[in-house]
Design a protein around this nucleic acid. Structure first.
Lengths: 225, 225
DNA sequence: TCCGGCATCAACCGATCGGTCGATGCGCGG
DNA sequence: CCGCGCATCGACCGATCGGTTGATGCCGGA
């Protein structure tokens, strides 16, 4: 879905005249109600201009040249938010992307930030915080929700503890898919002993004692989805 | 959070005069942006009146006497939507509750409907569908999103297949929590053999071969959370 | 009434897992 | 340079799991 909201052309961004430079905003969310809400929030503030809406990542990439800041949901049908952010980093490096989503799980936060998001907010944020965050993002500052910030801190503070290594995540995903140690070993071209070692480390990091509860804990922490 | 939106008293609902009876609406959602969006949608339609907003279940129950229909999110901090629906069924049986949420997992849909929701919509619904749904709910009709309807159908069509029995869900939850068969047996006051039998049935229904992937599949299907 | 699902239990067996020792090599940062 | 984490591998053992067969009683729908 693509909706062009104004008759103004891209060159019109300074048309407002008074009140300083207008921040042109692109709203990307698959929920019509949320788009309405966001448009209402920013439409009420003078120096913002909502220049478009999109309901998926593909449409967002198409419309991004009209905007200074993109408010991006992550979980959308078709092209998701992370993919859209990655594409925007390549095609429109000047556009800031601010993630605005419901979820703060590891499996959402880390990929989004790796993909190049300027900030990450949760939808339960109050309106004023949203406005402040978009202003900050427009200046290139990083804005994080407190819980997201904590999550990032945790995964930096202790690279050993809590955060599973890439290999360990692979093993865990295979186990969650029903693989025995032998299956996982074959899949990863290593020995069963290696898989067992990885699993023991996983148990250690997740604070569990067997593969079943490791899978459960991984889902609870958003390491799997 | 509680916000009273109008100066009108509950007795004023017929004040509008023209256009038939006004439907008084209570919006319950922990996201300010979503509340804004919903208020915008229904504020633009003549025969609706948004008489209040709440950001959690407790506040919703307090404000419900002012409303004909409650638009209720499920996952909220504090008192959640399911609990709020159950309380409303007792204290305000005349109020229709329409669930409006992001999630369509089994672990959300079934409890909400059991608790007494009149309908269940997803937030990606277009605005017109929302309006129609609230009108229908006001008349006592059941409104379901297509995917939710399908989920209900499936759990009715085959009480055997796919839908885990209550006992099986208990066992699965224990296993996800790290319990061995023996642990689960002790916890449920049955023998290990019984637990094993339950697990075999669970494997069968979920299409898996071991406890780890059963847990994974259960999370994917929303049977655990 | 009878069938089917559910819940319960028992015994048995091989396969797998979890735990514990050990070991090697690589890469990175103090 | 040395230490640390990571990834890799091997061997051993007891505990647990998965699979099978077979059984009982209860309940509700055809």
């Amino acid at each position: 879905m693509i909706r062009l909201l104004t008759g103004e052309e891209p060159g019109d961004q300074a048309a407002g005249g008074e009140g300083g430079p207008v921040i042109r905003l692109l709203i990307v969310d698959d929920h019509p109600v949320v788009r309405d809400g966001l448009r209402g929030v920013f439409g009420a503030v003078p120096d913002f201009e909502v220049v478009g809406e999109a309901s998926d990542g593909a449409a967002a990439v198409e419309l991004a040249d009209r905007a200074d800041v993109v408010l991006m949901d992550l979980r959308m049908p078709g092209v998701g938010g992370v993919e859209a952010i990655a594409r925007l980093r390549e095609t429109r490096p000047g556009v800031r992307v601010l993630v605005l989503t419901t979820f703060d799980s590891d499996s959402d936060v880390l990929p989004a930030i790796e993909a190049g998001a300027t900030g990450y907010l949760l939808k339960d944020a109050p309106r004023e915080e949203l406005v402040r965050a978009v202003r900050a993002a427009h200046c290139g500052e990083s804005v994080l929700s407190p819980t997201v910030a904590g999550r990032l801190m945790a995964s930096v503070r202790r690279p050993s503890d809590q955060a599973l290594s890439a290999r360990e995540r692979q093993v865990l995903a295979l186990v969650a898919g029903g693989a025995t140690n032998r299956d996982a070993a074959r899949e990863l071209f290593v020995s069963e002993a290696t898989v067992k070692t990885h699993l023991l480390h996983i148990y250690d990091k997740l604070g569990v004692r067997d593969r079943a509860s490791a899978v459960a804990e991984a889902y609870r922490r958003g390491l799997l989805s």
